[in-house]
C-alpha cells in the first residue's frame, strides 16, 4: 500500500500546486503602490482582465507581453467577448512613469470600459 499512497499524495500535491500556479498566472511579482484607502478585492461575477505594467513600461495582459498599440484592440475583443461587462485591473509598478500608465487608461476609456481598478498594497501607517 505504502508506495501507492506515496504516489497518490504526490499527485494530489502536484495538482494542488499547479492549480495554484495557474491562478497566479496574472499576478506577476510587482512592487505595487501603497495606499490607505484600498478596499479588499472582492471576487465578483464580472470577468476581469489584469493589465500589468512593469517598471520599464512593458505591458503584460493575462500573463503575456503585449505591445501598447495592441492593447485597445485586445481590450475591445475581450469586452465584446464578455458581453460588455468587463473589469480591468491595473497592476502598475510604483516606479513606472505615468506616461506608461496613461495609454492603459486611455485604451480602457476608448473601449468604454469604465470599471477600472488599481491594485495597491495596504499601507501600514500614515505617511507625512
Amino acid at each position: 500500500m505504502t508506495p501507492m499512497i506515496d504516489v497518490v499524495f504526490l499527485l494530489i500535491v502536484f495538482f494542488l500546486v499547479s492549480s495554484h500556479l495557474a491562478k497566479q498566472e496574472s499576478r506577476l511579482p510587482l512592487p505595487l503602490p501603497d495606499a490607505e484607502s484600498g478596499l479588499p478585492s472582492a471576487e465578483r461575477q464580472t470577468a476581469r482582465v489584469t493589465v500589468n505594467v512593469l517598471s520599464d513600461g512593458r505591458i503584460y495582459l493575462a500573463g503575456k507581453l503585449l505591445p501598447v498599440d495592441q492593447l485597445q484592440p485586445r481590450l475591445q475583443y475581450e469586452f465584446a467577448e464578455q458581453d460588455r461587462r468587463l473589469q480591468v485591473r491595473i497592476r502598475g509598478d510604483r516606479h513606472v512613469p505615468y506616461h506608461f500608465i496613461e495609454p492603459v487608461l486611455v485604451a480602457c476609456a476608448r473601449t468604454r470600459i469604465w470599471n477600472v481598478q488599481v491594485a495597491v498594497i495596504q499601507r501600514r501607517q500614515a505617511r507625512p
Binding site: A35, G38, L39, P40, C108, R110, W114, Q117, A119, Q122
Partner: peptide, 11 residues
C-alpha cells in the same frame, strides 16, 4: 494581500 482602488473613468 492585494487591495484595490476603484476608479471611474470618464470620456
Amino acid at each position: 494581500v492585494e487591495y484595490v482602488l476603484p476608479t471611474e473613468l470618464s470620456w
